[in-house]
């Protein structure tokens, strides 16, 4: 366990020296605060931030994460030469990346909502947005780690990260929209819900929707949505799915890390 802390500490020190993470925190702080500043009410700021969270968080986590893991390569190799359990080394490596990312978002986006607590954003909405952001950071940090361990070619790794982002954030929804239109005459709600759960960006979005837009979701004619989103069930399902999206890539990356030959 000491090793986890040690590597985590090293990672944190490394990252805090890194101006990127500071700029990242400040930019969220600036944007969220700015949205309030320019006359936004709580719900509006939440919705504006949602778009940012869905696009920017995965991008930063993927690109920054892959680069970070590549950059830690020599440090990792050095430690591997020591009598150190690989499992703990990996945990430290991942946490050293994921925690600052999630923390930076939490601080940057969270503080303005605490400051402007009276501006009408519901607690459920804020918690859902912050939770979705943290979940996305953790999930995409895990995916980034996996990509970086998957290939030694840095260019290829970053390219893969960018491609993953494009698919997860934009292309996937386009395909879903196409499918919904093409199979509109069939009962598509259930498969569609399943498709939503198969993409972490959509999971995060649905999680926030269940808090912010339940009035619209309940307007849908199908009873399935009513049962799913009318209660805490929808929020629960989305939250569990997001956690799953952190665990699975992390497991894959961990397995790769334990087995590969450095």
């Amino acid at each position: 366990m000491n090793v986890v802390l040690l590597v985590l500490q090293a990672g944190l020190r490394d990252l805090s020296r890194n101006r990127w993470i500071v700029a990242y925190t400040l930019s969220f702080l600036g944007i969220a605060e700015g949205l309030f500043w320019f006359g936004g009410t709580g719900p509006q700021v939440l919705l504006s931030l949602l778009n940012l969270v869905l696009l920017v968080l995965p991008l930063v986590a993927l690109v920054f994460g892959t680069i970070h893991v590549y950059a830690s390569r020599e440090f990792v190799e050095l430690l591997l030469a020591q009598p150190v359990p690989r499992r703990e080394l990996f945990a430290g490596l991942y946490l050293g990346l994921a925690l600052p990312l999630a923390g930076a978002f939490l601080v940057g986006a969270g503080i303005p909502f605490v400051v402007h607590a009276r501006d009408g954003a519901t607690i459920g909405g804020v918690v859902a947005l912050l939770g979705a952001g943290v979940g996305l950071s953790l999930a995409f940090a895990a995916i980034a780690t996996w990509i970086a361990l998957f290939t030694d070619d840095r260019l290829k790794g970053v390219g893969l990260a960018l491609g993953t982002w494009l698919v997860a954030a934009v292309v996937y929804d386009g395909l879903v929209l196409g499918a919904a239109a093409a199979f509109g005459n069939y009962p598509v709600e259930r498969p569609l819900l399943g498709l939503m759960l198969a993409n972490p960006v959509d999971v995060a979005r649905v999680l926030v929707l269940t808090q912010l837009d339940v009035s619209a979701l309940m307007g849908y004619t199908g009873a399935l949505f009513e049962r799913t989103f009318g209660t805490a069930l929808g929020t629960g399902i989305a939250a569990v799915a997001l956690v799953t999206w952190c665990v699975i890539p992390l497991g894959l990356a961990g397995r790769r890390f334990l087995r590969r030959d450095f």
């Binding site: 934009v170 919904a180 569609l192 849908y220 199908g222 949505f225």
Partner: peptide
């Protein structure tokens, strides 16, 4: 209009793609 014709597409509400 999309949702009017394909109600289930409502699930894509607030998606960045939809904003675009």
């Amino acid at each position: 209009l999309v949702v009017e014709q394909h109600p289930a597409a409502l699930l894509l509400l607030r998606s960045p793609l939809v904003s675009i």
